[in-house]
Design a protein around this nucleic acid. Structure first.
Lengths: 141, 141
DNA sequence: TGCATTCAGGTATTACGGTACTGCAATTCG
DNA sequence: CGAATTGCAGTACCGTAATACCTGAATGCA
């Protein structure tokens, strides 16, 4: 009974994390530091970071002075790619389960929800990580 | 890891139910019939119907030949009102929990998600139940 | 070579949504 | 007028999924 069209907290953390990493450039950031910066639990963040690494969006280094940074070429990625790396692919959202009622003709809700979904997709896809890149060398955006 | 921007099944059922009721006009529809029509569980539908009644969107009649129908004046309502009666108010969606990071300046994600949310709101608010009203007296739409 | 640091994976816990059950009111028929 | 049937209303249970925790493995430095 609580909320609305929900985006998972994990996805939110992931998006913010990627932004942080982009701002840091080649520098490594530890999970602990990022957790403090964002004010989220380090445990939860770690899990999200694992997803990003496995998806090839970030890369990790262990040991002292280790941490995470954006993988090479990740600047070209969109926020949509990041989102899908965490929460899985963005579903087509076919209406509901409505075979019996909404299959034949185009259900009003189906059309409506589909268009909303398209808009979300477009918005996420239109933003690239390169917009937030702050080069360590000093070259501003 | 499963889905995406999610709309609850309860909300979907509620929206469809209201459409069904609108098409039926003054006639009462039993929960069982509607459940069959939509292909959803009667128990779950009942819960949704309770919400609609308490919100003043639908009205119920007990006993034989009872059921549910749209409340007087409900034709003027929008799909947004129906949605909020079921899933609660549509949150402003402030970003995530991001006080520490996103409070001061406008967070990029906050702005993005907020605009998406606005679009959803507008879409839902632009559709009125009267569009689906089929008068029992015979006057076509 | 040993120790401190940090990531990696698996495991428990909590919260939410969905489901099922039981109770109450109204109507209709005998 | 009374009883049984019909159908809504509220409550309680259960399963799933998201979140928080905990232990282990690997790396780099002294």
């Amino acid at each position: 009974m609580s909320s609305a069209l929900r985006i998972s907290e994990a996805a939110s953390i992931g998006l913010h994390t990627v932004l942080l990493l982009a701002q840091e450039g080649q520098q490594f950031l530890s999970a602990r530091d990022m957790a403090r910066t964002m004010g989220v639990s380090e445990a939860h963040l770690s899990k999200v970071l694992q997803r990003l690494v496995r998806a090839g969006i970030a890369e990790s280094a262990r040991g002292p002075h280790g941490g995470f940074r954006l993988a090479a070429g990740a600047e070209a990625l969109s926020l949509l790619a990041v989102y899908e790396a965490i929460d899985g692919p963005l579903r087509p959202l076919p209406c509901l389960l409505g075979r019996p009622m909404c299959d034949g003709k185009s259900c009003i809700l189906g059309g409506l929800l589909a268009s909303v979904n398209e808009q979300i997709r477009d918005q996420l896809a239109s933003v690239r990580l390169s917009q937030f890149l702050a080069r360590a060398s000093g070259e501003a955006q």
